[in-house]
């Protein structure tokens, strides 16, 4: 089974980033959230490998609970 590749793998990173932000142009927060969810599902299916997906999910969640301030008082 493969492992998650976290070395640079996108040929033109700035182009990709611009496209990712552009994807959300003129969308409400709810519409953006839906687009993000669809994108995650499409990419997850393309990857397929459960080990890679598990590692990506763990990497995405890493440090979130400590670094992001919550609005709860």
């Amino acid at each position: 089974m493969a492992t998650l590749d976290t070395q640079a793998n996108i040929p033109a990173p700035d182009d990709f980033y611009e496209a990712l932000i552009g994807l959300h142009r003129d969308l409400s927060d709810a519409q953006s959230a839906l687009v993000n969810a669809k994108l995650i599902l499409l990419l997850a299916n393309h990857i397929g490998d459960p080990q890679v997906l598990r590692e990506a999910m763990a990497a995405a969640r890493e440090d979130v609970l400590v670094s992001v301030p919550t609005h709860a008082s």
Binding site: A33, I40, L41
Partner: peptide, 24 residues
């Protein structure tokens, strides 16, 4: 939760066009 609802709606929206989402 709102995010759970969002993924649910995303699956349903994708299922119309993309076979992989039907299994979800």
């Amino acid at each position: 939760s709102p995010v759970s609802r969002c993924f649910r709606d995303a699956v349903l929206a994708l299922a119309r066009r993309h076979p992989f989402a039907r299994g979800l």
